[in-house]
Amino acid sequence: MGLLLALTFALSAVETAVSAGLPAGVRIGLANIVVMLALLSMGKKEALTIVVAKSVFILITKGVTAFMLSLCGGVASFIAVLLLIKSEKNSLILISVAGALVHNIAQLIAASLILKNINTLFYAPVLIIAGVIAGSATGTVIKITLPAVKKAVNDNK
């Protein structure tokens, strides 16, 4: 748990560095990988803790606006993933993409509320495309790393 938390912070920082080269506002969602891994290998409580802790980390490093956006996105995507994960029919890619999309859309809505302005919604298609690509990528990473994480969690019990 502590290890995953540390990983989230590290990935959050890496992501900020990498995002500098991407179009404005587009993020990869590296830290979301850890949230999903936690949800799949441990449980709801642990995953939600990571979501909130990540936002607090952002509050410290980047300020209040970023914190609010991060929390809205994080919690909304957590709920989406939680609902989709219940059915065995849903594939990992779908869940991961849905998580990324809901994350982006929730942030966009939060941004609109802060600006009291719907201009931001014109940005939705760009973020949807980014979300699909990022979600597919993170889904693949989760597929590859999940067995190892599950094993580590069980060994530590």
Partner: peptide
């Protein structure tokens, strides 16, 4: 499962419409 046909189509449709 990692991916299935239905979910692949859903994701592709979202992507293409955006």
């Amino acid at each position: 499962k990692f991916i299935n046909l239905r979910d692949g189509i859903i994701v592709a449709v979202i992507f293409l419409s955006a």
